[in-house]
Design a protein around this nucleic acid. Structure first.
Lengths: 184, 184
DNA sequence: CCAACCATGTAAGCTGTTACATGATTGA
DNA sequence: TCAATCATGTAACAGCTTACATGGTTGG
């Protein structure tokens, strides 16, 4: 069973801080998670579906009359499967923001080894995609391109190179952590 | 009157090279424009709507029985309005790829001054968004964030910095061109 | 001749958007 | 008390995806 990115984001948020639907909307409005819309027409139906699917459960909070959504065991499992999936070249090419969202929710797994595996596939796919882009830019197909088109492609290449550099830096963070864990 | 990004992409392609619907699909399949899907269920309905809206016209080619889509005057005008619109902070934050697509289709206008205006708003919005992100990262809200979340944000920041650097470089290209034009 | 490709379309279903609607609570 | 905010929902619509369906052309 699986959901949309919005669904996974809601499960991940529910793990980090059980909240009402309204509170989730506020998160999408006021944080860099704002890529997701906070419209009621998207969130409330999504919460309903996740509850029906057994990934979330509405429970009364310490304050009565203020039920909040918690993630169930099934919800945590579904999120794990989603975040732990290797990063494909297609994902890098067409929805790299989703890959980064998955990285952010690796927190819910919190396993340095798994994080390093994720980053390795991320870097591999970014490099493959970069090769494809530079190869295309060097081909005769690109020679027919306008300067505008070529520049736009270079913008993409620059962005992917920044992502690769970021991922290499992130690797170091988790390699250190991994060694510290092993040492203690 | 306006369309979706897919619609504008089709108008832009039709200006660059009038083609059949099938040929447009091949472009989306085999070039970096592959962010758009090449599924028939998206392209043929879109072509139909654009034709009905008066932005495209199907005309027989040099080969008879092989009608191709051409952009009409209205189509060119609609594309111009779309590509020339200033780049907003929201666009940078949520759909920067669309901004880059618009940049690529500035070719159809081909006015260095307009291109420089576009790049200036692009850089301004990227910088505003970067300030927002770094401000958020420094706030106490981000202090509660996990290392994963912080790293994911840094990935975003690195990407936007690369885009800013790219845009500054692109400015120079068109400033040179602008001066050459003025000199001759 | 047969497989592969050219070429176009439609129908069902899902997601998300916008807009509307409702009502409770809370602070000035 | 009155505005703002909390809180949830629905209905209409647009867009895209997948899958199915159809038929023509072309090269081996």
């Amino acid at each position: 069973m699986q959901t949309t990115p919005l669904g996974y984001a809601l499960i991940g948020l529910a793990i980090a801080m059980p909240s009402s639907g309204y509170a989730f909307r506020k998160v999408f409005e006021t944080t860099p998670l704002g890529a997701f819309s906070s419209s009621p027409g998207s969130i409330y139906p999504a919460l309903g579906k996740l509850t029906k699917a057994g990934f979330l459960k509405q429970r009364p909070d310490t304050n009565p009359h203020k039920p909040v959504y918690h993630a169930t065991q099934a919800g945590r499992a579904a999120l794990s499967v989603w975040v732990l999936a290797p990063v494909s070249v297609e994902e890098v090419a067409n929805e790299i923001d989703i890959a980064l969202l998955r990285f952010a929710f690796l927190e819910s797994v919190n396993d340095p080894k798994a994080t390093l595996r994720f980053l390795a596939t991320f870097i591999g796919s970014v490099e493959t995609h970069l090769e494809q882009l530079t190869h295309y830019l060097g081909s005769e197909a690109a020679a027919a391109l306008s300067p505008y088109g070529r520049l736009a492609m270079q913008s993409g290449i620059a962005g992917y190179e920044a992502q690769r550099a970021w991922a290499v830096g992130a690797q170091q963070v988790f390699e250190n952590e991994h060694q510290r864990d092993g040492a203690k």
